[in-house]
Simulated scan of single mutants.
Amino acid sequence: MSTMHRFEVQAADGATGARAGVFHTAHGPVLTPVFMPVGTRATVKGMTPESLEALGVQVVLANAYHLFLRPGADLVAEAGGLHAFTNWKRAILTDSGGFQIFSLADTLKLDDDGVIFRSIVDGAWHRWTPEDNVRIQEQLGADIIMQLDQCPPYPAEEAFVAEAVRRSAAWAKRCWAAHAREDQALFGIVQGGLYQHLRRESIERLGEIGFPGYGIGGYSVGEPHELMLESLAEVGALLPADRPRYLMGVGNPTTIVQAIALGVDMFDCVLPTRTARLGTAFSSEGRLNLRNARFARDFGPLDPACSCPVCRSYSRAYLRHLVNVKEMLGAILLTTHNLHFVLDLVRRAREAIVAGEYAAFVRAWMESPGANDY
């Protein structure tokens, strides 16, 4: 493992599994816990790189599947990689695109060597091996890249999930062997669904390789929330303490608070930005549907407990008007607010860990008016 990609645990909460750390990347240190906004097609919808930086975003996600289809990894490489192409100066993580491919099961052909899939853009067929996927992500040039894996749905038969674990572990070895860029950190991905013995097997197989970090995949795909947390608790305890743990595709504020207590360091999700575009704001009161008539003459701030630029400058009534007439400014402002809300929550969680008060932080959040609304 490159010393560039070392992870340092700076504080650990004695009453929970929460920890505050720093993961070093080619584009600077990333303080954890961290929430990473999703910019699937090399943009977080409605946000400029400058506005993301002003919010304190440390890492932005992009998706190898979508960028492979448009504009093409060759073009991004010609532009100098994603950082130059997008004018984003901080860290970038690219997802392998495996989740997107396997979610389109009706256009998928799979074998141990790789996967054949049909483009959602023009219907053309493409074949990816693990080596192809790594090459594409190296062309894109992200700081953190993810192995190609098979993500089984929920529910799924144990035999099917076991085969996905076996195949993903074999692909992990091939991704590791193919990866050549020392300025990139390649993460393995733990699979296994809710079958704990398969989760343990996946962790053991990945541990033989020695990745600098680990994604935790296969959750938030329809399984009961409490079962996910029970499973995640054991997974967090089994993963190496000196490597970052990345819970993929989770952005629910309450789940983030609970997962940090189980030792998770990194999160990403489209939830804050997608709900914003649908006219919903996160708040200390829970979710606010700005289409609701009760906000028509509410000239107070969106969330009185929030210090973001939107809450300092715009009323609920105005935001409701923008949402109802479908002005793009409404989506931009709500996206700004929702990202601030989640980023600030994670920032305060880190402060509580450093102070040794994370258990109290969790209790306060769970007793807050909006906790059960997420």
Rank of each mutant, 00 (worst) to 15 (best):
M4Y: 04
F7D: 07
E8F: 08
A11T: 08
A15K: 12
T16G: 07
G21K: 00
F23H: 11
H24A: 13
T25S: 12
A26G: 15
P33I: 06
V38Q: 08
R41C: 02
K45E: 05
S51V: 01
L52Q: 06
Q58C: 06
V59R: 07
V59Y: 04
Y65Q: 03
L67V: 05
R70C: 07
F85G: 03
A91Y: 01
L93S: 09
G97V: 03
F99M: 12
Q100G: 03
L104M: 14
A105T: 05
D106C: 03
D106N: 14
L108N: 05
K109F: 06
K109R: 15
D111C: 01
D112Y: 01
G114W: 01
G114V: 04
G114I: 01
I120W: 04
D122Q: 04
G123K: 06
W128E: 02
W128D: 01
V134K: 05
D143G: 04
P152Y: 02
V161E: 00
A164M: 03
R166G: 09
A170M: 12
W171K: 03
A172I: 09
C175T: 12
A178H: 04
R181H: 10
D183A: 10
F187G: 04
V190Y: 06
G192A: 11
Y195S: 01
S202P: 06
S202V: 04
E204R: 15
R205M: 12
G207L: 05
S220H: 10
V221I: 14
L227E: 15
P240V: 12
P240T: 12
Y246H: 15
N252R: 14
N252M: 14
T255A: 14
G263A: 13
D268I: 12
V270F: 05
P272H: 12
A276D: 09
A276F: 08
L278D: 08
A281M: 10
E285V: 00
N292Q: 01
A293P: 00
F295Y: 15
A296Y: 05
A305S: 03
C306Q: 08
P309V: 06
Y314R: 12
R320E: 11
L322W: 10
L329E: 11
Y358F: 15
